[in-house]
Design a protein around this nucleic acid. Structure first.
Lengths: 163, 163
DNA sequence: TGCGAATTCATACGAACGGGTGACACCGCG
DNA sequence: CGCGGTGTCACCCGTTCGTATGAATTCGCA
């Protein structure tokens, strides 16, 4: 109950409801068939009722245990073992750069883009005109297969071009 | 559209449960009525069978819920998480989110932004209009102190809002 | 049950962005 | 020396983005 995002989703609930209904229908039909064919003789009601009672009681118990979910709470404790991982200082790897045909200037602009700078701000930062930044970024987008600067940043990070 | 992200309030859950339960009940009752109208004379025991089934199923559920001792087992699983390259397996931390007053929807949009999607693509992805995405992102920029989406992504990553 | 927050949608407008093209200069290499 | 790659800059045009404003609806909570 205290878990708001319990694994028993709405779908699970619905599935159980459907399963229950379906099983009930199948049982009723099959029991009727059985009764008509083999137990129609005498005193079938007792057998019939008994079977229904037993089966549905079992089914109910199973449902009671299942519907409410397993009464066990699994607490997952994550123990983080930090392995060296990436070097803290990002090294502008020329290999990755050349592999994609990205020039130094383009990579530089990509990094400034990732820092959230606009074209104008980038232009002022590296002392070129805004148009120059545009041409660089256009070529960069071509090489990265991106259509937006955000996409270029995403690809650049995924490719290890920028930290 | 209710994607699995939505919290799906308890009320909605309850409503669906009641709906399907009610449907099942109506089905059973109507079936029994039909049966009663045409077969009550010769097959009245089937009604009793149904009653027995319902009663024993309820009894079984009750049994399953109460009689069977259900000790709450707390299973603590300790998992060693080795971090190779990327920082940590990112978990959407509501604390960080609340600390900056960012709503779930805004955070969701920020994440899609960081994946390089345009407003239109985000709108299509989460089934809202582009204007809605614009509204969300505007408010998000206010809260993050950003003026561009790239800047918002940068701030979001620096703040641990997004991986 | 009422209220504030959250979500949704719309319109309009200016700013930023991206594509396309053309141009010029520099540098290294054959 | 020509040639390709790179860097720089400009213009135009269409798209996308961001802002402002208003409003309706739903949700969560007291």
């Amino acid at each position: 109950m205290p878990l708001p995002d319990a694994p028993t989703s709405r779908w699970t609930l619905l599935r159980h409801a459907l399963l229950y209904g379906g099983l009930g229908g199948v049982l009723i039909v099959s029991l009727q068939l059985i009764e008509y064919r083999y137990l129609v003789v005498t005193h079938s009601f007792e057998i019939y009722g008994g079977l229904i009672a037993i089966i549905f009681a079992s089914l109910g118990i199973w449902l009671g245990l299942t519907l409410t979910g397993r009464p066990e709470r699994i607490v997952v404790q994550e123990i983080e073992v930090r392995v060296p991982a990436e070097p803290v200082v990002f090294s502008p790897d020329p290999a990755r750069r050349d592999a994609m045909g990205v020039t130094k200037r383009e990579l530089e602009i990509l990094g400034l883009m990732a820092d959230g700078l606009s074209n104008k701000e980038i232009a002022d930062r590296i002392f070129v005109s805004e148009n120059t930044v545009k041409t660089h970024s256009s070529r960069l987008f071509d090489k990265l297969g991106a259509r937006r600067r955000t996409q270029a940043i995403h690809v650049g990070k995924a490719s290890g071009l920028i930290p």
